[in-house]
């Protein structure tokens, strides 16, 4: 199996994640799209690390995982608190920051 395939797979996964973020309204699903994009990136990092024989990419993948975990915690907490106050998890309802 060519290493390029992994890159293509990462691109496909990233695109699916981005589409999810852009097209779905439910905050949980959007969150999952974000996770998908992050993991696609991780895949690309690892693949490139392998390609160049350099561990930097793998290290970065760990970093991304740690940050993603933290982000999930904070993000879910925000979603929960929004759901509590507004009775909705739709991202389109949360538009109070516009002028």
């Amino acid at each position: 199996m060519e290493l390029t395939h992994y890159v293509v797979l990462a691109a496909i996964l990233f695109s699916i994640g981005a589409a999810t973020v852009l097209l779905r309204r439910n905050a949980i699903i959007v969150f999952m799209g974000v996770e998908l994009m992050l993991n696609a990136t991780n895949l690309a990092f690892v693949t490139f690390a392998r390609m160049h024989g350099d561990v930097t990419g793998q290290v970065l993948a760990f970093f991304v995982m740690v940050v993603a975990a933290a982000e999930v915690v904070v993000g879910l907490a925000i979603i929960v608190s929004i759901f509590r106050t507004r009775r909705s998890a739709s991202v389109d309802d949360v538009n109070l920051l516009k002028s």
Binding site: A18, V21, L22, R25, V30, V91, D92, K98, S99
Partner: peptide, 12 residues
Amino acid sequence: RGWQNGYVRSYG
């Protein structure tokens, strides 16, 4: 200002 519609998805 029209761009600043408050929809996260459009920002995205």
